[in-house]
Computed example of a mutant assay.
Amino acid sequence: MPPSCDPQHAPAGDVGAALMMIDSRLQGIYDAKAESGPEQRAVIDRFVASLGREEAEDVRDGTCTLIYMFMTWLRRAYEDHDKDVIEVVVPNLVATMRRMPKSVRPEAIPTMAGLLVAAATGLSPSLWRNQYGSWSDHELTPLDATALLLAEHINRITDDSDFATRMISDALTGAGAD
């Protein structure tokens, strides 16, 4: 019998580090004119390279937590408009990932779509994925891309380039106060 995919059983991971990486990439996209893009990317690359195995797994789990939180927010937002988040968001993100072959290998797309559906239905993305074995190296960049695309989608529909980051930061601050 597979373990429960209930989010209460999932490790939250290092959500702060995962959010920092996603926010940094978002700012690089939004501020494309800035010359800090390559410097910013180098800082993130050095940070990732400095992580030990356990720390990297914590950031991976944190990224899954972000995906869960983003999809939960999107599900509620779309339900308020009588729309299904799976019907609206998943095909859009899959189509975008298909246009990113250097970052998202085609064989990783079904897994990322599964993570989105798992999160949209209230399951932990990390526990859902763990049912199928260890994460492969070629899934990690697509995982980051999935979280980035979700954050950008949220920012676009709210017309606020900092909304997704602020939403998670506020949730982390509230959790820390408890």
Results as ranks from 00 to 15, higher is better:
D6P: 10
Q8D: 03
D14G: 08
D14P: 07
D14C: 08
L19I: 00
M21A: 00
L26Q: 02
L26K: 07
Q27K: 01
D31R: 08
A32T: 04
K33V: 09
A34C: 04
S36F: 02
F47P: 01
S50N: 07
L51Y: 05
E55R: 09
E55P: 10
E57A: 12
D58V: 05
R60V: 02
D61L: 07
G62Q: 02
G62V: 02
T65A: 02
M69I: 00
F70A: 08
M71T: 00
T72H: 06
T72D: 07
W73F: 11
W73H: 14
L74Q: 01
A77C: 06
D80I: 06
D80K: 12
D82G: 13
K83D: 05
V88L: 13
V90F: 02
N92K: 14
M100W: 12
V104W: 05
V104E: 09
R105W: 07
P106I: 13
A108Y: 01
I109K: 05
P110A: 15
P110S: 15
G114P: 08
L116C: 14
V117L: 09
T121Y: 12
G122T: 05
L123D: 01
L123P: 08
P125L: 12
S126K: 10
L127F: 15
L127D: 09
W128D: 06
R129P: 09
N130I: 06
Q131Y: 04
W135G: 10
S136P: 09
S136I: 02
D137P: 01
D137F: 09
H138N: 07
H138F: 13
L148Y: 06
L149I: 11
E152Q: 13
H153D: 05
H153W: 09
N155H: 12
S161F: 00
D162I: 13
D162C: 14
A164R: 07
R166M: 15
M167A: 15
I168S: 15
A171C: 15
A171Q: 13
L172Y: 11
A175G: 15
G176A: 15
A177F: 11
